[in-house]
Design a protein around this nucleic acid. Structure first.
Length: 800
RNA sequence: GCGGAUGUGGCGGAAUCGGUAGACGCGCCGGCUUUAGGUGCCGGUGGCCGCAAGGCCGUGGGGGUUCGAGUCCCUCCAUCCGCACCA
C-alpha cells in the first residue's frame, strides 16, 4: 500500500469485486426483508453522461445504500430511454443508423456508470429500443386500445415544421417546439391519442396520496386546470341553433352584453359571409400560437351581424368573432361579461359595447365577489350563494347544467418519425383499424434508407414492411407508419424492472406487487409535468385493467437541483461544462460524488467550484491517511469513552437523521469531516482503540457517499465488508454530555456562558446564571423584573 | 398578470421545534516542516471602535408579535422557476 490516497488503485478493485460477485443483484423471492424500490429517472443516452447524471446517481445511490444497511431489500435498477429525436437527427446528418449511435452512447454510459461505482442491479438493465422491451410497449398499447383508451381522431394539432412531426400539448413551450425551438403550427391531422382527460379527476385527487414536493403537485394541478361552472345555451335565431358556452361565473349572466366565437369555430363562416369576417378569420388562422398569445396583444375582433338570446333575460346580444377566444378550450364560444372579466372589458371598451355591472364591489372590471345587482330574481343575493341556484334554475328551464372543464388535453402520442416504437395496428380497407395480434408482436422497426421526415413517417417508404395482410380478413392491408411518443416508453419502464427478463408477459404480477410502487423516485424537476403525469396516467389505466395493484407509480419523489458553474447553467456554448469523465480521471469517483453532495442540499442547485472539490479530496485523503498503518482487529473502543468516541457517536446520530429523514447529504458529510478533524487534532493524546473506532465509524458513515474508500478502509480495519454491516447505531448515553454551556442573557442578549451540569434543576440553573460576574457588571444595579429559564439551555434576565 | 420558491461573511452553505447566528468547506492571513516551490500539519478569519479588557452593529429593506426572531405575522424590494387570453 502506498502512503498516498490513490483512488485509481482503490476504485477499480471494488468495482470489479461488485461486478464479479453481483453484489447489488436482488431476487424477486421474498426473504422476509422489507422490499424497497429506489429509482433514478431513466437517462436518455446521448453522447456521454453529464454532471446532472452524476448528481442524480450520487443521491440515489446514497439512499439505496442507506436503506440496504437499514435492513431493506433494495431494488436499484438502471436502463436507457433509447428512442428519440437526437439519435434520429444524427442519423439524418450522417446516415449512421440511430441504433448504432444509440448503442455506442449506451456503451459509454455503461462504462462511466460502472466507473462511478453505483450499486445497480445490472441483471435488470435494458434499453427501450430493444425489441424485447418495445414488444411489451406495443402489447400495453393494445390493451389500452381495447379498453378504448387509445383512439384515433382528426384534430387541430401542434406541428413542428423543423422536426416535421406533431407534438403533444406538453411539448409546446411558449408556442415553440420543446426540442428545437421552432414556432409550431396548427394542422388538422388524424392522430392517435390516449384518453388521459378521462383520468383528470383521479390524477388530481390522488396527488393527496403521494409524498411529492409541493411545487411539483402545484404544477400538476395547474396543468390539469380543473374549473367548475356551467354550460349555458344561447339560442341564435338567425340559424335556429343553440350555442353552448362554458362559464365559471353563471352568476354574472345578467351582465352578458355580447357573445364571442373563436375564429376556428366552424359556424363563423355560416353566420357571416362578409369579406371583413372572412379576412379576419383567415389572418387569425395563419398566425402562430406564439403571435396570437403575445402578452400585450390588442383585443381584435369583428361583428358577425347576428345575435343570440341571453337565456336569463331574453335579451338579444350581438355576436363577434375574436381571436382571444380559443377553439380548444370549452366550446370555442363564450358569453362576454365586460363588467366582470378583464378580457371582455378590454374588448368592450375597444368596440364601444355596453358594460353592465351585476356584482357590487370595486372598480370595473371587477372579478371579486359581492351582492348581485340588476340580476332579476337574484338581485341582492351574495353572488357565490346565488351561483348554484342559478345553475339549478337554468337546468329547470333546459338552458344549462353544471359542468367541469379542464385545461388538460388528451395525450397525442403518434409521431411521424422513424426512431420510435411502431404503433402495432394495420389499416384494412375492409375492417378499418385492426390490432396486430399479440402473438405477432413485436412489430419490428424496419431498416430504411432515408430517415428524413417529409411530412409523413419515414417508415412509409419501407414498402415491403408497410404492405401486409389484415389479421381479421386476410386481405391486403397497410401497417400504421407512425411511431409512438418516447414518453410512452418511459411511462412503464419502472414496471419492467421488476421482472425485466420475462418473455411471456411485460411483468409477473407477483413481482410487480412485491416492488411497486417505487418508494423513492429521484430526478430533475423538468419532468414535473410531462413524464410524471404520463406515468401516473399509465399506472391508473393499468390498474383499471387489473394489470397492476397500485394507483400511483412513485410514492415519494425527490427533485434534485441543477448544478451550475459561475452561477450559470453548464452548457457547451458557454464553455463551462465539467465532464464527469475528467473528474473521475483526476480525482476519482468518490471525490466527485462527495463533492457534488457536499456543495449544498441536493434539492437545491449547487455552484461548481474547482477549488471546492480539492477540499473534499483533501478530506478523503486525510481519512485515508488516518487509517494508514492501522492493523486489522477489533474496533470497540477500550475503557471510558473519550471526547473522540462521543464525537463519533454524535456523527452516527447526525448522519442517520440527516440522510434518512431529509436527504441532507451536505451536512452528513460535514459531520464525518468533523470526526476526522477531531481525530487529527487529538491524535497524539488519544487512545489507539478510540482512534480505530473513529476511523472505522467515519469509513462506515462515508460509505453511502464514497463507497470505494469506505469499503477499503473498513476492510483494512476489520476484514469485513462494510455494505454487509448494519448501519451503525448511536449510543444515546454517549450523545448526552455531562455538562453543557449555559447561556446567560439580559433582555435576550448574550452576556456570558458558564459550565453547568447536564440535567440541572431549574432553580439551580438560575442560581448558576446569577453567579456570573459578567452578569453583575452588566446589570449595574438594575432590578430584575422577570427571569426566563429554558432548562438545559439558557437563563434570560429581563430588566428595567 | 396568476402561482411557487429563494434572499445569511469575500464565496458555497449551516443553524432540523421561537432559545449561543455563521457548523463544514473554499478563499485569505500567520506559524511549523522544507534548500525552495508544492504537499502536509497547527492556529486565526462577519463588520466597526479599542493597545487591551471590552463595547457596538449584524441574517434583502421597513414595521409588528415575544422575555427572546435568520426562524412567526404584515408590508415592500430583488432574483429564480412554473403557467399565462383557459372564459
Amino acid at each position: 500500500m502506498s502512503d498516498r490516497y490513490e483512488p485509481k488503485q482503490i476504485e477499480p478493485r471494488w468495482q470489479q469485486l461488485w461486478a464479479r460477485e453481483r453484489t447489488w443483484e436482488v431476487s424477486n423471492e421474498d426473504d422476509g426483508r422489507e422490499a424497497s424500490y429506489v429509482l433514478e429517472m431513466l437517462p436518455y443516452p446521448s453522447g456521454e453522461p453529464h454532471i446532472g447524471h452524476l448528481k442524480v446517481y450520487s443521491v440515489g445511490d446514497a439512499i439505496a445504500h442507506f436503506r440496504r444497511r437499514n435492513g431493506h431489500k433494495v431494488l436499484h435498477p438502471l436502463g436507457y430511454d433509447a428512442f428519440g429525436l437526437p439519435a434520429e437527427n444524427h442519423a439524418i446528418r450522417t446516415g449512421q443508423h440511430p441504433r448504432e449511435s444509440t448503442e455506442s452512447s449506451i456503451a459509454e454510459f455503461q462504462r462511466q456508470f460502472r466507473s462511478w461505482g453505483i450499486s445497480i442491479d445490472w441483471s435488470r438493465e435494458f434499453g427501450t429500443h430493444e425489441p424485447s422491451y418495445y414488444r411489451w410497449t406495443q402489447w400495453l398499447f393494445l390493451r389500452l386500445f381495447e379498453a378504448g383508451l387509445a383512439y384515433r381522431k382528426e384534430a387541430a394539432v401542434n406541428w413542428c415544421p423543423k422536426d416535421a412531426t406533431v407534438l403533444a400539448n406538453e411539448q409546446v413551450i411558449d408556442g415553440r417546439c420543446e426540442r428545437c425551438g421552432t414556432v409550431v403550427e396548427k394542422r388538422d391531422l388524424e392522430q392517435w391519442f390516449f384518453s388521459i382527460l378521462q383520468y383528470a379527476d383521479r390524477l388530481l385527487e390522488d396527488l393527496e396520496t403521494i409524498d411529492w414536493p409541493a411545487h411539483v403537485k402545484t404544477m400538476q394541478r395547474n396543468w390539469i386546470g380543473r374549473s367548475e361552472g356551467a354550460r349555458v345555451s344561447f339560442n341564435c335565431v338567425a340559424l335556429d341553433t343553440d350555442y353552448e358556452v362554458f362559464t365559471t361565473r353563471p352568476d354574472t349572466l345578467w351582465g352578458a352584453t355580447f357573445f364571442v366565437m373563436a375564429p376556428e369555430h366552424p359556424d363563423v363562416t355560416r353566420l357571416s359571409d362578409s369579406p371583413e369576417v372572412d379576412e379576419y378569420v383567415r389572418r387569425a388562422l395563419t398566425e402562430s400560437a406564439e403571435e396570437r398569445g403575445a402578452e400585450d396583444k390588442e383585443k381584435t375582433g369583428v361583428a358577425l351581424g347576428a345575435t343570440v338570446t341571453n337565456p336569463v333575460n331574453g335579451e338579444a346580444i350581438p355576436m363577434y368573432v375574436a381571436d382571444y377566444v380559443l377553439m380548444e378550450y370549452g366550446t370555442g364560444a363564450i358569453m362576454a361579461v365586460p363588467a366582470h372579466d378583464e378580457r371582455d372589458h378590454e374588448f368592450a371598451v375597444k368596440h364601444g359595447l355596453e358594460i353592465r355591472r351585476v356584482v357590487d364591489g370595486g372598480e370595473l372590471p371587477y372579478a371579486g365577489d359581492g351582492p348581485l345587482v340588476d340580476s332579476g330574481p337574484f338581485t341582492g343575493r351574495p353572488n357565490r350563494e346565488a351561483l348554484a341556484e342559478i345553475i339549478e334554475w337554468l337546468g329547470a328551464e333546459g338552458r344549462g347544467e353544471p359542468a367541469v372543464n379542464y385545461r388538460l388535453r388528451d395525450w397525442l402520442l403518434s409521431r411521424q418519425r422513424y426512431w420510435g416504437c411502431p404503433i402495432p395496428v394495420v389499416h384494412c380497407p375492409t375492417d378499418g383499424i385492426v390490432a396486430v395480434p399479440d402473438d405477432q408482436l413485436p412489430v419490428e422497426l424496419p431498416d430504411v434508407e432515408d430517415y428524413a421526415p417529409k411530412g409523413r413517417s419515414p417508415l412509409a417508404a419501407a414498402e415491403e414492411w408497410v404492405n401486409t395482410t389484415c389479421p381479421t380478413c386476410g386481405g391486403p392491408a397497410r401497417r400504421e407508419t407512425d411511431t409512438m411518443d418516447t414518453f410512452v416508453d418511459s411511462s412503464w419502464y419502472f414496471l419492467r424492472y421488476t421482472d425485466a427478463r420475462n418473455d411471456q408477459a411485460p411483468w409477473d404480477r407477483a413481482a410487480a406487487d412485491m416492488w411497486m410502487p417505487v418508494d423513492q423516485y429521484i430526478g430533475g424537476v423538468e419532468h414535473a409535468i410531462l413524464h410524471l403525469m404520463y406515468a401516473r396516467f399509465f399506472v391508473k389505466a393499468l390498474a383499471d385493467l387489473d394489470l397492476v395493484g397500485v394507483q400511483e407509480p412513485f410514492a415519494r419523489l425527490f427533485t434534485q437541483g441543477m448544478v451550475t458553474r459561475d452561477g450559470a447553467k453548464m452548457s457547451k456554448s458557454k464553455g463551462n461544462v465539467v465532464s464527469p469523465r475528467d473528474l473521475v480521471d483526476s480525482h476519482g469517483a468518490d471525490t466527485a460524488r462527495c463533492y457534488i453532495l457536499y456543495v449544498g442540499h441536493p434539492a437545491e442547485g449547487g455552484d461548481w467550484s474547482d477549488e471546492g472539490i480539492e477540499g473534499i479530496h483533501r478530506f478523503l485523503s486525510r481519512l485515508w491517511r488516518a487509517a494508514d498503518g492501522m492493523e486489522q482487529g477489533p474496533i470497540e473502543p477500550a475503557g471510558d469513552p473519550s471526547a473522540l468516541v462521543r464525537k463519533a457517536h454524535w456523527a452516527i446520530d447526525k448522519v442517520t437523521r440527516d440522510l434518512g429523514e431529509r436527504f441532507a447529504t451536505h451536512t452528513s458529510i460535514a459531520a464525518v469531516i468533523e470526526v476526522v478533524n477531531d481525530l487529527y487534532r487529538d491524535r497524539d493524546a488519544v487512545d489507539p482503540s478510540h482512534a480505530r473506532f473513529a476511523v472505522a465509524t467515519a469509513a462506515s458513515l462515508i460509505f453511502p457517499f464514497a463507497p470505494h474508500l469506505g469499503s477499503e478502509i473498513y476492510e483494512q480495519l476489520t476484514g469485513e465488508r462494510v455494505w454487509e454491516q448494519p448501519w451503525p447505531e448511536a449510543d444515546p448515553a454517549l450523545l448526552a454530555s455531562e455538562t453543557f454551556e449555559l447561556i446567560v442573557q439580559v433582555n435576550g442578549k448574550l452576556i456570558d456562558r458558564v459550565d453547568a451540569p447536564a440535567g440541572v434543576e431549574s432553580d439551580e440553573q438560575e442560581r448558576l446564571a446569577r453567579a456570573s460576574e459578567r452578569l453583575e457588571a452588566r446589570l449595574d444595579g438594575r432590578e430584575i423584573m422577570k427571569t426566563v429559564v429554558v432548562p438545559g439551555r439558557l437563563v434570560n434576565f429581563v430588566v428595567k
